[in-house]
Amino acid sequence: MSFVETHVTSLDSSPSPVDFRCAPVVEPFLGAARPIASAIRDIGGAEAVSHIQQLELASVLPELERRADAPVLLFHLAELLGHANLAAAWQGLSGIPARAAELPASVDLAALPDATGTRWTAWLPVVDAARPPSLALAGPRGWAPLPAQGLTHSRVSGLLGFARGEVLTWSTEPSVTPEELGVQSLAPESWSALVRAQLALLSGLLVGATRRLVDEAYAYAKTRQSAGKSINQHQAVALRLADLALHQEALSLYLTARVEECRPPGMRGGPESLSAGYVVELAFRIARDAVQTAAGHGYVEGLPFRRLFEQVRTLTVMLQGTKAAAEPVSPVP
């Protein structure tokens, strides 16, 4: 019997039309992930990632994907783990969308196209020279293993906020045919699963990262003294702290709803219906105000503010890119 069959509870058959509790289907997984989130909070990358891999999500996700629950689970796990250790969470979960789409096990990560369908981008949280990831291009009509002929490849090192991260891009001339690229078929539902999982992952990481920023800002404001009292007792700071909470709650609810909309089959919306512009606006406000709360200490290395400010920026860029890939105009491969 699989993990899903053993642990997944069925949804209430006569649910209340308004219910803000977490979907029952993900609770067992979150229960298993909570100790891992605590464990990875203060440890480095490789060790933290090995903790996350204990969840064996790769084997669970395809099964949940058939029930359309995979993005929901991925979102909540990414939030939980991203709050604890964003870099490790991204690294540990970045291969999951390829599994949700049931790409071959040899593919570690799928590069997604831009709106023109002639340029693909892969974001790597960590590049391990000893074991470079196995990559593939993916699009609404198929996927192609890399490397492939007829592509221009470029690499940008030093991904903002992720010291060992990289952005890899590939572009092709329109004259290059899918056959020349070695395109293999990808069912429309697999492409949809890939995009939804990627959006759910990034959304969850973003919610986790921004919640961490809010927590850090409140903790800092409570201990930092100015004019004989902690700075959270100064109204100007208190109002900013309130806006931090307000914007984080708004972002969290908005993204949760967008991701969970895809759970009931055939229901409108889904993560691809999200407004990337709005998400970027809220995430930026949270990151900006959190850094501002800690002022100089938020701007320099030491406390988590600077790193999270940069990481949130990178996450929003990735989310915008994935949202563009989800647009129906994306053509090939």
Binding site: D19, L253, Y254, S275, Y278, L282
Partner: peptide, 19 residues
Amino acid sequence: GVFRARISSSQMLALRAAW
């Protein structure tokens, strides 16, 4: 369209308080 998204957050905040 972005305002629709803002209102969506706002609707959920109100409904959550009611819930």
